[in-house]
C-alpha cells in the first residue's frame, strides 16, 4: 500500500513545494502591468536606491573576499584549541535575525556602543552614513563566503600543496598560486552567495544605518518606503532584486556544474 502510493506522494509534495515557492515570485511580476513596472523604474529615487544597493554590496563583498578568503584558509587548514568556537562565532550572523544584527551593530559601533566611543574619538561615525550600510552588509554576508571558502580549501587535494612546499614555495606563495586557483570555484560561489545576501539585506541596515535617499536607502529599504504609497514602485524594485538574485543563483549553479564536470 505504502509502496504503491509513494510515487504519488512524492509527486504531490513536489508540486506543492514548487507552487508554494514560485507563486509569490510570479505574483511580483503579474500584480501590476509590465509597462507600469518599467515606468516606475524610471523614477530617479528608484535608480538612486538601486545604485546605492549595487555600490554598497560590491564594496561589502570586496571586503568580505579580501579578508574572508585568508581567514577561511587558516580555519580550513589549521587545528587549534577553540577552533570550533571560532567557526561557530563567525557563522552566527548567518542565522541571526536581522533585527538582532541591527541592534548588535548599534550597541557595538554606535556612539554609545562598545567600541563606538573609540571610533568617534578617531573621527569615525558610522550610524546614518553610507559606511554603516557597508558594515551591516559585511556582517550579514561574510559568513556565506567564509563557509564556502572554508569548505573549498578543506577539500583541496593535499598533493599539489605539499609539492609546492617541497619545491621551496613559501606559505604565501602556496596560498596565492596553488590554493586560491584550485579553490576558485568555491570562492566564486561564496562571493556570489554573499552578494545575493548583501543585496537583500533590510533589517540590520534600517536599524543601524537608517534610511535616506542616496545615502542609506538601499533597494530593499526603498521597497519598504514605497509599500504604503506606491505599490507599483515597490513591485518594480522587487522585480529587479528577484532578477539579480536569480542571476546570482544561476551563476552559483553553473560554477558548481563546471566543478563537478572536472
Amino acid at each position: 500500500m505504502t509502496e504503491r502510493l509513494f510515487p504519488y506522494a512524492v509527486a504531490a509534495a513536489t508540486a506543492v513545494a514548487v507552487a508554494f515557492l514560485a507563486l509569490p515570485v510570479v505574483a511580483i511580476f503579474t500584480h501590476s502591468s509590465p509597462g507600469r513596472l518599467v515606468s516606475a523604474l524610471g523614477d530617479a529615487s528608484a535608480r538612486d536606491a538601486l545604485r546605492l544597493s549595487l555600490e554598497t554590496a560590491a564594496i561589502a563583498v570586496a571586503i568580505v573576499v579580501l579578508v574572508g578568503t585568508p581567514a577561511a584558509w587558516l580555519l580550513a587548514t589549521r587545528r587549534f584549541p577553540g577552533r570550533t568556537l571560532v567557526i561557530t562565532l563567525v557563522e552566527l550572523p548567518l542565522v541571526l535575525p536581522p533585527a538582532v544584527a541591527g541592534l548588535a551593530l548599534l550597541v557595538a559601533f554606535g556612539p554609545d556602543g562598545l567600541v563606538g566611543g573609540g571610533l568617534e574619538d578617531a573621527g569615525i561615525v558610522l550610524p546614518l552614513h553610507t559606511a554603516a550600510v557597508v558594515v551591516a552588509l559585511v556582517f550579514v554576508a561574510a559568513p556565506f563566503h567564509l563557509r564556502q571558502a572554508q569548505a573549498a580549501f578543506a577539500s583541496l587535494d593535499p598533493g599539489p600543496l605539499e609539492a609546492s612546499r617541497t619545491l621551496g614555495a613559501g606559505p604565501a606563495r602556496t596560498f596565492l598560486r596553488v590554493a586560491v586557483p584550485a579553490a576558485r570555484g568555491g570562492l566564486v560561489t561564496g562571493a556570489a552567495l554573499a552578494l545575493a545576501r548583501a543585496l537583500g539585506e533590510f533589517g540590520a541596515t534600517l536599524m543601524f544605518a537608517g534610511s535616506l535617499r542616496g545615502v542609506t536607502r538601499t533597494a530593499s529599504l526603498a521597497i519598504y518606503d514605497r509599500f504604503g504609497t506606491d505599490i507599483d514602485g515597490a513591485l518594480a524594485l522587487s522585480a529587479v532584486l528577484v532578477a539579480a538574485a536569480a542571476a546570482l543563483l544561476v551563476t552559483v549553479r553553473l560554477v558548481g556544474e563546471r566543478r563537478a564536470a572536472r
Binding site: L106, G110, P111, D112, L128, L206, M207, G210, S211, T216
Partner: peptide, 21 residues
C-alpha cells in the same frame, strides 16, 4: 540636518535612545 527618514515613530525613537541620532 536630516540624516534618516524612518518608516515609523518607533524607528525614530530607537535611533534617539541608542544615540545614533
Amino acid at each position: 540636518a536630516i540624516r534618516s527618514e524612518e518608516p515609523d515613530v518607533k524607528s525614530i525613537v530607537g535611533k534617539l535612545v541608542t544615540g545614533a541620532a
